[in-house]
């Protein structure tokens, strides 16, 4: 069978390593989609498994440089310099107020946009693979996989009621002629 092992967050390293290997040993064609975390610099996925690494950390929402410089960096630099001299207390107060009212909301907005970009990237990769490969079986190996596909799964299952879904790959008992 053609299996997609979906772990877009991919913190369950041992499970990913063990279960994809077991699936490959059982003769399945296994595709793994997972966040490329530092763990994998020292650990290997079974070579029979086709891996689609996600690299969401390379994505970062851009902020208008004028906004960044004029509203965040420049005022902070000036106020921090002032804090060293005799104006320590008022400068500190103004810096904290500036951060609270101006700089932090800008940064929060950028973080939210970055988060949305990364989610969209993960989702596009996953749904792209599902469309392209016509899998027989999807392993939703972590809550993040269910979360990411939550808006798409009902339609997918309605379209393909025979698609097998599980939360792990293990030595399942014979059922419906599978394995």
């Amino acid at each position: 069978m053609k299996i997609l092992y979906a772990t877009p967050i991919a913190k369950r390293y041992r499970a990913i390593e063990t279960e994809t290997r077991l699936a490959a040993e059982d003769g399945h064609e296994v595709h793994l989609v997972a966040d490329r975390r530092p763990h994998w610099d020292d650990h290997e996925v079974d070579p029979r498994v086709t891996v689609f690494w996600l690299r969401p950390n390379e994505l970062r929402a851009r902020e208008n440089p004028i906004v960044t410089w004029l509203l965040c960096r420049l005022p902070r630099a000036v106020l921090r310099r002032l804090r060293i001299g005799p104006l320590t207390r008022p400068a500190d107060r103004v810096l904290r107020a500036w951060d609270r009212r101006v700089a932090h909301p800008i940064e929060r907005r950028r973080r939210r946009r970055t988060g949305s970009m990364r989610t969209a990237y993960r989702l596009a990769t996953l749904t792209g693979l599902i469309e392209a490969h016509d899998y027989d079986w999807i392993v939703l190996g972590e809550p993040g996989a269910v979360d990411l596909l939550a808006d798409d799964l009902p339609a997918l299952l309605a379209r393909r009621p025979g698609l097998r879904t599980t939360y792990s790959y293990e030595t399942f008992l014979e059922a419906d002629g599978v394995r």
Partner: peptide, 17 residues
């Protein structure tokens, strides 16, 4: 997520030896 999981769960837990 809960709504989708309620649909998925009954079809996604095959027995294991």
């Amino acid at each position: 997520v809960w709504r989708v999981q309620r649909e998925l769960l009954p079809r996604s837990v095959p027995p294991i030896a």
